[in-house]
Design a protein around this nucleic acid. Sequence first.
DNA 1: TGTACCTCACTGAAAATCCAGTCAACCCTG
DNA 2: CAGGGTTGACTGGATTTTCAGTGAGGTACA
Lengths: 211, 211
Amino acid sequence: MSDRRRGILEAATRVIARRGVRGLRMGELAAEAGVSTALIYYHFTDRAGILRETLEYISERADHYTAEDEAAPARTPPGDRDPRTELEQVLLLELQDTTEVRENSTAWGELRASAVFEPDLREDLARNTHSWVHDVAELLAHADPFGTATAHAAAAERLTALVEGLSVRWLSGSLPVEQARRLLHGAIEAELGNGRPGAVRGPGGGGFDGS
Amino acid sequence: MSDRRRGILEAATRVIARRGVRGLRMGELAAEAGVSTALIYYHFTDRAGILRETLEYISERADHYTAEDEAAPARTPPGDRDPRTELEQVLLLELQDTTEVRENSTAWGELRASAVFEPDLREDLARNTHSWVHDVAELLAHADPFGTATAHAAAAERLTALVEGLSVRWLSGSLPVEQARRLLHGAIEAELGNGRPGAVRGPGGGGFDGS
DNA sequence: TGTACCTCACTGAAAATCCAGTCAACCCTG
DNA sequence: CAGGGTTGACTGGATTTTCAGTGAGGTACA
């Protein structure tokens, strides 16, 4: 991919984080990228195309967060941590007040919100959500080897939905990040039990598979 | 408030539920309300004004759901139910596939999402959220008399954030209502313990007060 | 009672604005 | 000098906002 294309996609990410998917104007995007509107049409087909590619770009980028928790000066390699801590880290990743996470979370929230009105976006969304939920379910299985797969799937769906819920509250200024992080921590305790070896309780929902 | 004003606000609610906040067009609103566009400018200052008032209207209306769970033919008066069931009913209220709830949830979700980009909306939002969380915390206190107020506040914030998270997933077509309801049920179990008399566990977050 | 005057709710139509998308031409650089 | 990369200027269509005016109904008062 050319530098220009990438530059435009990065600019689009910033504009989306600032104005929302629905607030993205080609003119503002061009200004943000430091180019003319016409050039954008040279590199991309149309507004929808930019949106699609940007959202893809963002999704990919979200996979590559490399655990930049500002509060972990001496970092422990992921493999060495106990499973529960790792689960917590992975979920907490989405609740950090850094430019990158903010941008990504904002854009992700916008994608979610837009999907309510634009069925086109749903497939992408469902795929990404599903893989996230799946990853979390796997971490839960490590943290709680005695629970059933069904229970893990349900707990994972709950925890990820909670992260999204807390995330919007944070981004819309109703909840400080720190508080959101504490709440998430509490939710993990509620799901896995207070002590280390607790089992996932309750049948929860059945194993719905979005596909 | 005149009938006309109210009528326009109601029409606006429907249009927002259908097209989203950004998708609201004065022309469509006028058509939905059965009046001319000009009349809207007679009653309200401008598009932003309509948005503001409609969102306020929606917030208020959300307080007045009167537990219309379609699946409760022989209804038990709220006072008679045990506190935990009542808590569950109140939260489940937001996850029903009826026109009214869908409209309100959709519009509420839009309000949340818009607030990420429009600070003007945040105050209203915070106020309403806070009172919702507060009500839920009170129900939790009844259901779990031995827990601390702090723990109840945290659990309430989590449960309501979860409801919002599940709600968007539902409305964006990633999750069937029934599944969302089961998941919420599971979350209540996780928070209150599986059996009836369980205590709210874990310190969770401190008692953040949005104001 | 008749009528001049006034206001409120409301409308059709045009003005103003906004925005995605296009095009002919320019400018490097190999 | 050919061609990819780039732009300023522009267009058409959609949307918001304004404005002049209409008609129903109310009020004061001769």
